[in-house]
């Protein structure tokens, strides 16, 4: 087996685990996007910037806030940041929704996209001016430092926490929207807002809060990411394109689709990064050079350096077969 794969099963398992970690990031980010698109019909391009702001608020709370307010002992630790950063960024989102976005609901998607893209550029520009581009260090909280030796790999405790935390939040969100009364109002609001309003539900308020929640999810992911990646003004724009692909593959607006696709694509990416498939293709075609040559372009797609491309290849295939995405409904 190991001979055929060119990599030990243990090493492959390690790669899959890393894929799962990344997949849970994709899941929580695409979940926020999917909720916002599903209920507001807005393609929220500010999502990456809001993720970045979540990370920055955690950093500021830990390293700067005390200094700014003249009380050096004041430190907002990681755990408080997990709660406070989403609230702060969510409030910022609500402000945007109230003042700008709500004027665009009756227009084409493109207007919302342009507005949110513009806001993202402004936010990133401001943070770049204030904090520079090199990135800032945020330490892993003391309770989660170190890791477990799983035999086949060293699993940092913090990464395990990231998987648990994001999948838990994803599950709760899915449960609330799909299985509770509040969720049924939200879903009804997307189907027919006027009718729902006629039943006495405050639909505009509901929409505002939903946007705030979607944005808060992005900020939550940002705080989770802060100890792993450098806190950097461009950290969101590096990730957002992939996350959009995840939402499209899952089906625009589908809650479960976003979660399942996020985790699934993380795993696919992990397999490609490990180079297993490319090795298997090599071994299988080693007998006949003509077949090897014919299949070469396919093999290229499965080499580690193509791991950024593979998601978009999946997207193309899914859109060809199911234009509404894996879990989307055709209207």
């Amino acid at each position: 087996m190991a001979e055929l794969l060119g990599i030990t099963p243990q090493a492959l398992f390690g790669q899959l685990l890393v894929g799962l970690i990344n997949g849970s990031f994709y899941a929580i980010l695409s979940l926020g996007l999917a909720i916002i698109f599903g209920l507001l019909n807005i393609i929220n391009f500010t999502h990456g910037a809001q993720y970045m702001m979540g990370a920055f608020i955690a950093w500021i709370g830990f390293y700067k806030l005390g200094e700014w307010v003249g009380n050096p002992d004041l430190v907002v630790n990681y755990w408080w940041s997990l709660l406070l950063a989403p609230l702060a960024v969510g409030a910022f989102g609500i402000l945007i929704e109230k003042t700008l976005l709500k004027r665009l609901y009756h227009l084409d998607h493109l207007y919302g996209l342009l507005l949110t893209f513009g806001i993202a550029l402004i936010c990133e520009g401001l943070f770049r001016t204030w904090f520079g581009i090199s990135g800032l260090r945020y330490d892993v909280p003391a309770q989660l430092t170190g890791g477990q030796n799983l035999g086949f790999m060293f699993m940092p405790n913090y990464r395990a926490w990231v998987v648990v935390a994001s999948l838990a939040v994803c599950f709760v969100t899915w449960f609330v929207i799909e299985r509770t009364k509040l969720g049924s109002y939200l879903r009804a609001g997307t189907e027919n807002p006027r009718l729902l309003q006629a039943f006495g539900i405050n639909v505009p308020l509901m929409i505002t809060l939903t946007y705030g929640y979607g944005v808060a999810l992005a900020a939550f992911a940002g705080v989770l990411a802060a100890p792993i990646f450098q806190v950097n003004p461009l950290m969101g724009s590096n990730l957002i394109i992939v996350v959009f692909a995840v939402v499209v593959i899952g089906g625009m607006g589908s809650i479960a689709g976003a979660i399942v696709t996020g985790v699934g694509l993380g795993l696919i990416e992990g397999v490609v990064k490990s180079g297993v498939i490319a090795t298997v293709i090599d071994k299988a075609t080693s007998g006949s050079p003509i077949v090897a040559q014919a299949i070469y372009p396919v093999k290229l797609l499965f080499q580690p350096e193509a791991s950024a491309v593979i998601i978009f290849v999946v997207m193309v295939i899914v859109l060809l077969v199911r234009p509404a995405g894996l879990f989307g409904r055709e209207k």
Partner: peptide, 19 residues
């Protein structure tokens, strides 16, 4: 091992380097 540019998560590549 070559990674796409720019990248964000390098843990897969690092595990290969470790191996």
């Amino acid at each position: 091992v070559r990674h796409p540019f720019p990248g964000t998560d390098f843990s897969s590549f690092l595990l290969k380097a470790q191996a």
